[in-house]
Each structure stands twice: as C-alpha cells, then as structure tokens.
Design a protein around this nucleic acid. Structure first.
Length: 258
DNA sequence: ATGGTGGCCCGGCCA
C-alpha cells in the first residue's frame, strides 16, 4: 500500500497537478494539506473519476485537510478535540485499508516570540493526546502531513540560516520527538541517512534550484507499519514545472501483511 | 538590497 502526503498550497490552484501526480504515482492513500477550501468547494468528483473516495475538513480561506483513498475510507473524524480550539481545520482521520490514517497540518508558529509559537507546541501536544485517546501504538497508524518542524539539522539546507527561527528550535523538535515517543517512526529517515533531502522549498529566490529547502513533510507510522515499509520517496519532480506547490509529495510503500 | 514569490481575493494576511 502506497501512503502519500502533500501540502498542495490551495487545491483550487493545484488540482491539475494533483490529478497528474495521482496518475503517475498511483497512491493508495493521499493525505492533502492546505486545500484552502470550504467543504462545499472540495472537488470530490475529480477524485471519484480517478477511482478514489474522499473526505475533507476545511472552512474556506485557510488551512484545510483531506484524505483521498482507493482502499476504503471509513470512520472519519475531524479536529483535535471537540471541546478545544484546534486552531483551524488542521486534522482529518479515517480508516483506510486497515490503517488509521491522519492528515495533519501543524500550525506554523510564525516566530519564536509570536503567540502562535506556543500554540504550535500545544497543538503538537494535543495531537499526541488524540492518538493516545483514539489509537494504540500496537495498531497500524499513520500520521502524515506538514509538521512545520525540521526534525534535525540535516533536514535544513543550512542550519546557520535558521538561528532563532521556527521549524528548527529545540522545543519544536522536542514536541515532535514526544509525539514520536508515543510510538511513531519517521520511516523516511529510517530508510535514508543522507541530509539535503527536502520536501519544501521557498518560492522566493530560486530556492528549489539552489537546493535550499527543508524536510518538514513527514510520514510517521507505528512500528508494525514501519517494519513493512520497503521504500519511501520524496518526489522532487512535483516541485518542478508549471504552477507547483512549494511542497512536494512524500510517500511510503508498505507491503501486505504475511 | 530589510526585498524576494505565490495564494487568498483586491488590501493585506499568510506561508
């Protein structure tokens, strides 16, 4: 089963690129972030035509997350907690092909002295609570999306350029590590030891062509899935060409249980 | 050089 994640930076602007990518990458489950659509605007029919079921959680202009699956899509839930502010439409989860899949868009944080920064840390802590409340680390669980955190220094093009900035600060990395400590593996990193493997490049300044990016889009899975993951890829090709997102898709291939 | 690019949707926010 191929499980993918992609921050599309507006699905309205990106639909043709997403259809193209599904056509050649053939994901079984695709987690989308930053659809920037209200639920009523989500193009369910475009995915139905390709053989996929869909579920979307968005309120319009900002954020918005979706699940696209051709291996089933059941027991959909949205948001972090019904009695808590989830800082926008940033989480949707469902059972797809025997896996509890979560598409997440972690708040950006903006800057270390901004009120959105502690809110980002709190969001990550609440995500762990959600997993603890709704899943078991013994079960097949995937948490995929734009975490807005580079887990290690080798996940950014030049860490000296990020001093005092978000995405690399220790509290964010600790919050991500705490989430993983519940029982999740950054399986792409387990398979590849190299640095300079990025999933996001700023639109500005020719960052993509200068290899100035960050690895902030992650597929985190429980060990039962990590052990069956034989291949993973950041598909840089989707960052090229006409009207790309500033993020590119990441996917893993999980073999069937034997 | 305190910008740059792109998406929202048309003045300014957000990434």
């Amino acid at each position: 089963m191929r499980i993918a994640t992609w921050n599309v930076n507006s699905l309205t602007a990106r639909l043709a690129r997403v259809e193209e990518w599904i056509g050649y990458a053939q994901p079984d489950v695709l987690c989308l972030q930053e659809t920037k659509q209200a639920d009523a605007a989500f193009p369910h029919a475009a995915f139905t035509a390709l053989g996929y079921e869909t579920a979307h959680h968005g309120d319009g202009r900002w954020n918005g997350v979706a699940l696209v699956s051709r291996v089933g899509l059941e027991n959909v839930s949205v948001g972090l907690n019904s009695d808590d502010d989830d800082q926008g439409t940033r989480l949707i989860a469902a059972d797809c092909g025997g896996v509890r899949v979560h598409s997440v868009y972690v708040p950006n944080g903006r800057s270390l002295d901004d009120e959105h920064y502690p809110a980002k840390l709190a969001w990550l802590a609440r995500l762990r609570e959600l997993l603890a409340d709704t899943c078991s680390p013994e079960d097949p669980v995937a948490v995929c999306g734009d975490f807005n955190v580079a887990p290690e220094d080798r996940d950014v093009w030049d860490v000296t350029q990020f001093e005092g900035m978000t995405h690399v600060s220790q509290p964010e990395r600790d919050a991500l590590a705490d989430l993983e400590a519940w029982g999740l593996v950054d399986v792409f990193r387990r398979l590849y030891d190299e640095g300079d493997l990025f999933s996001w490049w700023d639109y500005r300044g020719g960052s993509f062509h200068r290899h100035r990016g960050m690895r902030i889009d992650l597929v985190l899975v429980t060990e039962v899935l990590a052990a069956r993951t034989g291949y993973a890829l950041i598909d840089r090709n989707a960052r090229k060409g006409d009207k790309p997102s500033d993020h590119t898709p990441v996917f893993i291939d999980v073999s069937e249980e034997t």
